[in-house]
Amino acid sequence: MKHVIPKTYKEALEHLSEGTYKVLAGGTDLMVKNRSWSETPARFKQDMLYIHNLDELRYVEDKGDHLAIGALTDYETLLRHEAVPKVLKDCLIEIAGPAIRKVGTLAGNIGNASPAADGVLLLYLLDAQLVIERKGARREALIDDVITGPGKTTLSNEEMIKEIRLPKSTFTKTQFLKVGGRKADAISKVAFAGAVRIEDGIVKDLRMAIGAVNVTVVRLREVEKLHTGETISAVQDSIVSIKNAYVPHIKPIDDQRSNRVYRKRVAFNMIEDFIMNMHIQD
């Protein structure tokens, strides 16, 4: 097996084009998954590209209509950057602890594609566009179209995420609510992110994303659209039908961290809590 530290992003794409490599960014998922006995090397099953040092992919840039985040930007840097939306920061501060956040990346969170990933939940909420490249080609895709299931993405072996774009939007209220086993350093049992923009009592933009209740993040754009343009009270009066719309999509599992009954209940509580309080400013 080959292990390579590419010196440049270009070189990284060159290696990737061979189709046998896996990229390691912060390594906080990969090193756990491929853990071996202590004092022996990690048990990777394929060729590895150590891209952690590609500083050229470490940036946060305000592009006017969107925020461009280089794929290797770590969570701690994002937390400190003034242009990063508050709701994303509210989420990031609840990911792991500082030492993981210093190396962990949104791109890695996407690549790992865990249904319980917190960063991914926020990328759904914020309509993130991913800039995906391979040698000689580039595509852009909405986060929803990249993640297809637990650990599954549409990324090919030759591709990697170069940049994450967050379209600018303003909200009058946002919420991130995560239930882990404890208050830090915990994997989500269930998580919720919500955002709304209310102008003159009218709901102009409504978004809700729910994590760890299905194979991918649940975000129902049709339901959100249905209620856009309504008054606050009209939306709140529809709480039962809104919740009903989510019923077929909230299908959590039992595991070592929680159980399906609880996850389901809390997911609906979170939806209701957000809708019923969306007019109350933070």
Partner: peptide, 30 residues
Amino acid sequence: GEGECGACAVLIDGQLVNSCLLPLGSVEGR
């Protein structure tokens, strides 16, 4: 050995990192 406890924490460029999850390949130039 899984990033959870911080007993292995070192500073990389002045900030805290868990060395048990850091492959040698990530340390080049740091």
